[in-house]
Design a binder for these strands. Structure first.
Lengths: 101, 101
DNA sequence: GGTGTTGTTCGATAGTTGTCGAACAAGGGT
DNA sequence: ACCCTTGTTCGACAACTATCGAACAACACC
């Protein structure tokens, strides 16, 4: 089954924003931005693997990530080039860690 | 009663993004970005005034807008300067109308 | 003081979403 | 062949959210 990675231009802006508007998913995106392509299992942010899988699906279907199989693992990476081209400044604005309240 | 307009630095990024991740609210923000300060009633996007009031509250409490009374109306404006300073590129990336699919 | 305009607030409701455990699937190694 | 690791999928459930009509509040104006 194809992993359903849509063309970014057909994804509504609100879907992209909604995908980023979750704490767990934002941590995943930050980890990807810093660490590059990573296995799903490397994102241990206090949720079960079912929940993690769900969040990765949301990110993928919002056009934020790409996934490829590698043995028993799956490697995920940020579609940064496309995102920066279509929404310049979005990722930069969102990824920089904010002051601790 | 104070309209509860929080300091932007204490609003979680996810709240800002969630506020923008709705079609009606995005239309309101776009209208504000283009038309400047406007009365609540000027945002007629096919929802009831109760719903409109709800969306304006979400935007206000996410730190995106400021509201002041003016007679029987209430004038709403975008907190663009603060947003651009704290999240440079965010609004620009989101406000530009996307290609029609 | 009454009437109309403009918004807000209050239930209520339907839909969406985040979360989990359990079951399942696909590989790799021994 | 067996088992372990790695992920996905499947209900199920709680929490949140978008929406509405109706009731209420504040102000202006006659």
């Amino acid at each position: 089954m194809e992993p359903h990675e849509p063309d970014l231009t057909v994804v509504p802006v609100t879907s992209v924003l909604a995908a980023l508007a979750d704490d767990v998913r934002l941590q995943i995106v930050r980890a990807l931005a810093e660490g590059g392509e990573s296995a799903c299992g490397s994102f241990d942010f206090g949720v079960s693997k079912a929940t993690r899988s769900h969040h990765l699906k949301v990110l993928r279907e919002a056009g934020l990530t790409r996934t490829r199989a590698a043995g028993t693992s799956r490697l995920v990476r940020l579609r940064r080039d496309e995102l920066d081209k279509l929404y310049p400044g979005l990722l930069d604005a969102v990824l920089t860690q904010r002051p601790p309240a």
